[in-house]
Simulated scan of single mutants.
Amino acid sequence: MSDQPKLGDRSTAIELISNTLLRLGFITAPSDIFDEKLTQGIKAFQQERGLTATGVINEITARSLEEARFKLGDRVLSFNFASIMRGDDVSNLQDRLIQMGFNCGKVDGVFGANTERAVKEFQKSVGITSDGKCGPATLISLMRLVKTVSGGAPNQLRESVKHSVRSPALANKVIVIDPSWGGEFTGESANGVIESEIVFDLAQRLEGRLIALGVNVVLTRSANNSPLEIDRIKVANSVNADLVIALKVDSYKNENANGVATYFYGRDDKGVRSVVGERFANLIQREICARTDLLNCQTHAKSWDLLRLTVAPTVRIDLGYLSNPKDAKRLATAAFRDQLAEAMIVAIQRLYLSAEDDAKTGTLKISDLRRAGLRN
């Protein structure tokens, strides 16, 4: 949507939004006007989808509402590189395939090459034409054979096993760091701190420490450019990353908002979560809160594109609020950014340690990792 609907607006687009929310059970009666009831329905939809619950129909929410229109069976699903199909019908297909042990990657609602390959494998297994398209014959076979197991569990197990066999050494791992350029609030704070500069400086401090430990580090931007999110996602996927870490600083109209929060991929409505992403988010959140005085705003499952479309486990860390004078003052201090970098490094290493080799939160130091030989 080019123009965001506002309270009191009427249009055919608002009618379509209303009908979608009605079908999904977020409102109880259709409407052709953007009123408070519709706003509350949008907030509930956003919350369930793992989006920020604002009640505003921004680009991400509009796309999610469009995807929510489709039920499995509404259309023939297929892979087309020039025009990728997205929707809840794709999510449902992926969920069913995973339940039966066919690996299509994340349940992300995107019909890509992995999903096509899983469909072909399924079709072969049931003796129907193996064309990778999900049409009537494939749907009938799916309905007949799908097992009653917890949605996404096999895929979560696969992700966990894949991670568990990796060496605890950081050497030769590929970690992508994605320093935010800035979002809705990109100006200077009361303390003259600019988000794009702060997070890029932190990214460089993190990069230097990781390189010293033998990690291959990829930054998604330089000091003076701002690639689109889809391009940054492509970079992360093209280098076969082991982890992706997005760095951001938040802002809010109320200066009392403060603290650090970490996000990982998950959709509670689908029962889907990145097992490794969630564990990594918890480790980072705990290490930062143990080593700094930032308020603990917890970890949260979200379905933002950066978390959903990256192949590697991905987290986004919101490192305080520039709109809060105390948080801004902390972030403006080089020594504080060093503390943040060390907390992240230790969390990365703890992610790869077995339970018996792990240590208590806030106790490991980078020098401990070197002495333990974990850089080789």
Rank of each mutant, 00 (worst) to 15 (best):
P5N: 01
T12D: 05
T12M: 07
D35A: 09
K43D: 08
F45K: 02
R49Y: 10
I57P: 02
I60K: 08
R63A: 08
L65I: 09
F70T: 14
L72K: 15
R75W: 00
R75S: 02
F79S: 08
N80E: 11
F81G: 06
I84Q: 13
I84R: 10
R86M: 05
V90Q: 00
M100W: 12
G101T: 03
G101R: 10
F102K: 02
K106D: 07
D108E: 07
D108H: 05
F111L: 11
G112T: 10
N114I: 02
A118W: 05
P136H: 08
L145I: 07
L157N: 04
L157A: 13
L157F: 12
H163Y: 08
S164N: 14
A169M: 11
A169H: 09
L170Y: 06
A171G: 06
D178W: 04
P179A: 07
A203W: 00
Q204H: 11
I211K: 13
A212L: 10
V244P: 00
K248C: 12
Y252N: 14
A261C: 03
F264V: 03
R273M: 14
R273G: 09
R273T: 12
C289E: 03
N296D: 15
H300G: 07
K302G: 04
S303H: 03
W304N: 09
V311A: 12
R316M: 14
I317Q: 10
G320S: 03
G320E: 08
Y321C: 01
L322E: 02
K329V: 02
A332Q: 09
Q339A: 10
Q339R: 13
G362R: 00
